[in-house]
Design a protein around this nucleic acid. Structure first.
Lengths: 341, 341
DNA sequence: TGGTTTTCTCGAAACGTTTCATGGTATTTT
DNA sequence: AAAATACCATGAAACGTTTCGAGAAAACCA
């Protein structure tokens, strides 16, 4: 039993009512030339009266463009509650509104062998924002596929392969520099470092920056001052005790993410130590939570909304301009002084 | 200059290679009967080799179904950083994966006169989750439009009109009851109440529950103990001073949202008062931030992920079962004891 | 005025699917 | 062995657009 016979207004309905060919209506709807002003106006009026709304799907089919931005993020059941991602997505959403595009979300189960290109093809996505790739797998073939098929895309964050692609990230080196400089200015010489996910783009970069700069600022160089986390709260909690039980304890902790810093803070407080008096803590990201923990976390702000917005901007520019050179945008981080240092 | 001539594998390419009609390939791809096993297998093999992936857009066009869930949320520049919404969205995303649907986001600018139905029609959305409607405008016509055109939908949270529709919400009355019972058990008799947005579904419900129950628990009944917020942090900050400057100060504050509670806490701490010793604070929602503030906020947990998931479930059931009666699901809240009480 | 150019409108084809009536082949029944 | 039935595969039509070549009408020019 069909319940809903009522069908929507199409271009043909308008054509019939106006007594013209439906192709003419199409021209009017797309604001193309070669239609006399009089007829154009008449058609517009009728379309308005009938409440016409173009069917984007039919449009997509023929143009092979979807007016859609697809955000592809790694399979992670809690993706949406990581406020780091959220702030980026907010930026993306703003950009979508600016360009009058719909926003689609896909989580990519790399294990199932689904590729970025397949997603774009399946849904006719023409702009893709690729988030936080896990570099355990080589994705240069994925990129080639997107390229070959005219899909425009940007990476968030930095793309690690050697192809030239659009990507937006924070200037990690500068971020680490600001952080260490601040710690040094407070008289710290022995700084523990909780490193981030080694399979991400940001993790290794921050680690390298730390290694290079901690020497420059004259910090102690013991290897045991660095522990390996993966950006999560849990890893901060897990690794912090290793730093606390060192014979010679650090006076400050620098974590490569706020979540790890917050996890570490929890351990430190549990040990009865006071932050920042007994041990200073510094994070990286400036996620929402950083402002709420006690004491509020001093951290390096990434301009996350801006990053999301710029990622879309870049992809759009690539699309509109044949000769636009894909580029990597490294935005400036900023010190957020709060009470944990 | 066309750069990308390469075109994707279609059902026809497969048909040609297999030497059959493309309609036969279609049958195979959709797992329909009436194709001999031998041929089916042959076609599947070829499709696999060629890396076929169905074009959902063409599919949508003909079936008028999009395999898409559209989430429509109110125009709000910071929608995505409100973790309350996020946790719901996480649930929606989980459900989408379960049902193998893509997730689309739309912010509805009610002022521009865009309607829910227009969005669904434009993008051929067939399942819609309508979030946090602002009831300053009557939307019963919108609902009728959706109905008339066979669009299935759920409200989040409760729908206030008289039509029978799918909606998912938390049992506000029970939540308020649990909260006040707990406050009463701690000996509080004078409780300040910061009410939520009066144009939402939850705001008035919680206010009414408060009014009814605070009497039952024997709390003071001064009108001045209730102030009017709108769920935001800022409104909590704004309204709290009115309660602090009362001749007879309340011993506890109950806010209709965590954000307002956190805003209130800030004001209280600034006045040099200690929480919970000088004044207890209780929130509602259990957003992410509640666990991070100092002292951690005692609050009423809404099962937000579950709510998102159930909203999709309901819409799907309506779609699959002609006779399914639209229903309102009121999920049970839960007391999160933390340190602010 | 007659021819040429420009402007406007139209009809047909295409996009990649699904659906459905039709007919052909294989299998069963009598 | 012929008739009836089941099973397969097909080709055409449809979904709502855009595009494009062609014809008709209008405008221009000499």
């Amino acid at each position: 039993m069909k319940r809903f016979e009522k069908t929507s207004i199409t271009i043909k309905d308008i054509a019939k009512k106006a007594g013209v060919a439906h192709s003419t209506v199409s021209l009017v709807m797309n604001d193309r030339e070669h239609v006399s002003p009089k007829l154009r106006e008449k058609i517009l009026k009728i379309a308005n009266e009938m409440g016409y709304m173009p069917n984007m799907v039919a449009r997509s089919l023929i143009s092979k463009k979807s007016s859609t931005v697809g955000v592809v993020f790694p399979e992670n059941p809690h993706f949406f509650t990581i406020t780091y991602f959220l702030m980026i997505i907010e930026g993306i959403q703003n950009a979508c509104k600016k360009y009058n595009r719909a926003l689609m979300f896909f989580s990519l189960d790399q294990t199932k062998g689904e590729s970025y290109y397949q997603i774009s093809r399946k849904w006719l996505i023409d702009l893709m924002i690729i988030m936080n790739v896990d570099y355990t797998r080589d994705i240069s073939k994925d990129i080639q596929d997107l390229r070959d098929n005219g899909i425009y895309f940007s990476f968030l964050t930095k793309y690690l392969g050697k192809e030239k692609v659009n990507s937006v990230c924070v200037d990690n080196f500068e971020g680490v520099r600001i952080a260490l400089e601040y710690l040094a200015s407070q008289g710290h010489k022995r700084v523990g470092f909780i490193a981030g996910n080694p399979n991400s783009a940001d993790g290794p970069e921050r680690s390298q920056a730390y290694k290079a700069l901690s020497r420059k600022f004259g910090f102690d160089q013991d290897d045991e001052l660095t522990v390996q986390g993966d950006f999560t709260f849990e890893s901060g909690e897990r690794e912090m005790p290793k730093l606390l039980t060192l014979k010679k304890r650090p006076t400050a902790i620098f974590a490569a993410s706020d979540y790890m810093a917050i996890g570490a803070m929890r351990v430190i407080k549990e040990q009865g130590l006071y932050i920042p008096k007994d041990m200073a803590v510094m994070g990286f990201d400036n996620t929402l939570e950083a402002a709420y923990v006690e004491p509020a976390l001093t951290t390096i702000r990434q301009p996350l909304q801006e990053m999301g917005e710029k990622a879309v901007d870049l992809a759009i520019r690539s699309m509109n301009d044949e000769n636009f050179e894909p580029q990597t945008l490294a935005l400036k981080p900023e010190l957020m002084k709060r009470r944990s240092c």
